[in-house]
Amino acid sequence: MLANYGYKDGSGDYFITINTDLCNGCGECVAVCPANIFIVVDEDPNDPMRDGPVAIVAEEKKKKLKYECNPCKPTQNRPPLPCVEACKTGAISHSW
């Protein structure tokens, strides 16, 4: 499942996509993210039949991604995003 967390507002699209078929719930993204965007849960609230842990975007962060991710997204010389780099299975992507 492609889980798109985030929003679109007047200023643009801000979505973090987690491919739950690739995510193994290892929690590397949780460890590297300076803004505590991710959490790993045992039961996927969007897919009750799934067995095994999965990463999701924390509820209180979902409406603020544009702001919360800013430190990782400087306007110049943008380095690779820590969460995307840390995810060995390539489950995480950003829309902006």
């Binding site: 499942m1 798109n4 679109k8 979505f15």
Partner: peptide, 8 residues
């Protein structure tokens, strides 16, 4: 595949 927009 899903998305939900409840911010705006």
């Amino acid at each position: 595949n899903f998305l939900m927009n409840d911010k705006c």
